[in-house]
Design a protein around this nucleic acid. Structure first.
Length: 453
RNA sequence: UCCAGAGUAGCUCAAUGGUAGAGCACGCGGCUGUUAACCGUGUGGUUGUAGGUUCGAGUCCUACCUCUGGAGCCA
């Protein structure tokens, strides 16, 4: 029976007969025996195997090359040499699948750009193994966080007919062949449909029934964005809470990020050590800071004053009523506060229709959580729960009320104050691993002009 | 989409307008409880594509393609 390398490396005593099945990272030949370094992805580390020339299978040792897969049986013994606690004394080796000299993953380091061109093989590298183990663990942590706080997981639709949610350009979903004269009514759903850009509006309906809910699913934006932090397909987490205001929303957002950082420190230590050493030297310090210190909270108007008084020459001028530019966000979170920073109460003109209007009649209950190195990682708000005000907001945003009849109904029947936010899972991963490009924290990145694999 | 930069061996990179090279990978030989092993040696090229200037272009010019960084949009 196969034993994962993860369990062998964590052994507390020698083991008599074990079977390992893995991919060969490298082979080093010595006089009369060979070292095989095996990795099965179950953990960061590899297992060193010592294969004597007399062991069954050794006659074919030349084919045990980097990238090949193999089965090795043997005894787990304490290693006499430096570098590893345990090693496997092989009693039998068997090649499962060969890898010839064209195998592109060398023992040496590769650039991230090159590895993106072999996205089907890069999970076998140290970095990407670590990234995707961490990704899996954090996905689990997301559910654990919400489930332990009595949130229900809601599967909002991937296909939506709402073409004006305001979150971004949408991908069309159609079964039409694109022939001239085809009418939308002839399409599969009888009307134009799209891939979702957010599950928020739908999940609000469940918050107004089950109280605390969240989504965690794929999200699509057809924006022609070419940056290190945008992808056309990404995973978004959207909690929504009934009987909750902006303060409760900000509390949850900060608690959530802290919990994810804590979880990474506690459960991904080995992979994290690799990130801290080779990807981002400041990672450990940053994660501990995030866990231990409260986030800064600053109203938008105050943030504008800070930027104006900074004496800094920004490329884009700082003006009340305009969105914060990347350089402004970076200044606030990286230089001024040197801390994750939540900016709230934005001018109503620059935010969507569903955000609640404050008593000053000028700002809405929006909040963005900015983190050093990434920028915006969370965007959220308390929702407008007053029917008349919502109608007015929609008019101001030139939206057709009829398209949102069910959304407005939530305010018509038993309306409640409620709030939530959206968080890009990949951006969270970037923040927690130090990996600087979103294409490197998602298995197969979809970006403009690129849907290979 | 805009601005900037880069495309040369499988990978990472050199190469005054004048004979395309190195390290690594890979092959072969040697050595060794090795561990990004080591020593020797060999194979490896339509210099992103298409034009142009020139006696001569990897190098200069034009267009296009791809990638990277920054910006916008956002999560």
């Amino acid at each position: 029976m196969r034993t994962l390398i993860k369990h062998l490396l964590a052994a507390t005593q020698p083991l008599d007969t074990v079977t390992v099945q893995a991919w060969i990272r490298t082979r080093r030949d010595a006089k009369g025996f060979s070292f095989l370094e095996l990795n099965d992805g179950s953990c960061f580390g590899s297992l060193q195997c010592v294969v004597d020339a007399g062991a069954p299978g050794y006659e074919g040792i030349a084919a045990f090359t980097t990238g090949a897969s193999a089965t090795v049986e043997g005894r787990l013994v304490a290693s006499p040499a430096q570098g590893q606690k345990w090693e496997l004394r092989a009693t039998r080796i068997e090649l499962v699948g060969p890898a010839d000299s064209t195998y592109p993953l060398q023992k040496k380091g590769h650039t991230l750009e090159f590895l993106r061109t072999i996205a089907h093989l890069r999970p076998r590298s140290n970095l990407f193994g670590a990234v995707f183990r961490t990704r899996s663990r954090l996905a689990f942590a997301v559910h654990e966080f919400f489930q332990s706080r009595d949130f229900f997981y809601i599967h909002t639709p991937i296909i939506t007919a709402s073409d004006c949610e305001g979150a971004g350009e949408m991908f069309r979903v159609t079964t039409l062949k694109g022939k001239p004269g085809e009418k939308p009514e002839a399409d599969f759903f009888g009307k134009p449909t799209y891939l979702t850009v957010s599950g928020q509006l739908e999940v609000e309906t469940f918050a107004c029934a089950l109280s605390n809910v969240y989504t965690f699913g794929p999200t699509f934006r057809a924006e022609n964005s070419n940056t290190a932090r945008h992808a056309a397909e990404f995973w978004m987490i959207e909690p929504e809470m009934a009987f909750c205001d902006l303060n409760g929303d900000m509390d949850l957002a900060e608690e959530f990020i802290k919990a994810m950082a804590r979880h990474t420190l506690e459960h991904c230590a080995e992979d994290l050590a690799f990130f801290a050493r080779f990807v981002d030297k400041t990672l450990n310090e940053r994660l501990k800071f995030v866990v231990e210190r409260p986030f800064v909270r600053v109203p938008y108007a105050e943030a504008i004053e800070i930027l104006k008084k900074s004496g800094r020459q920004f490329e884009f001028p700082v003006n009340y009523g305009q969105n914060l530019q990347s350089e402004h966000e970076r200044f606030l979170t990286e230089e001024h506060f040197k801390s994750p920073t939540t900016v709230f109460n934005y001018p109503r003109e620059i935010k969507p229709f569903y955000m609640r209007l404050n008593d000053d009649q000028k700002t809405v209950t929006a909040m963005d959580v900015l983190v050093p190195g990434i920028g915006e990682v969370i965007g959220g708000a308390q929702r407008e729960e007053r029917p008349a005000q919502l109608a007015e907001n929609m008019k101001a945003h030139q939206l057709n009320e009829k398209d949102y009849w069910w959304y407005a109904d939530l305010r018509r029947y038993g309306t409640v104050p409620h709030a939530g936010f959206g968080l890009g899972f990949e951006r969270l991963l970037m923040f927690l691993t130090g990996v600087a490009n979103i294409r490197d924290v998602i298995p197969f990145a979809r970006t403009p002009g690129s849907a290979e694999f």
